[in-house]
């Protein structure tokens, strides 16, 4: 498990967040900040885009903002 404060951008981690509650792309990015993952911002954007396409989560417009979520 990552040391304190460090997180890993994995499909499992994204799946866990989206199963918990609907999140916007910005919410997710805040969970995987570059200073916590050690990834560059481009790498983070590309990785997250690939993971989201693979997970193919549900989408929901909340307060005019697109949210992703995964039903259990």
């Amino acid at each position: 498990t990552p040391s304190s404060g460090e997180v890993q951008l994995t499909e499992e981690a994204v799946r866990r967040y989206l199963s918990r509650k609907p999140m916007t792309t910005k919410d997710l990015l805040k969970k995987f900040q570059t200073k916590r993952t050690g990834l560059s911002s481009d790498a983070t954007v590309n990785a997250l885009a690939q993971l989201l396409k693979r997970l193919d989560p549900e989408r929901k417009l909340i307060a005019d903002k697109m949210h992703f979520f995964l039903k259990e």
């Binding site: 997710l28 900040q33 911002s41 481009d42 396409k53 697109m66």
Partner: peptide, 20 residues
């Protein structure tokens, strides 16, 4: 910084545009 998150969110949504 939230501006970094904003920029990255815009880039991410651009990546996902057909997906959104």
């Amino acid at each position: 910084s939230s501006s970094e998150a904003d920029e990255m969110a815009a880039a991410l949504e651009a990546e996902l545009n057909d997906f959104m």
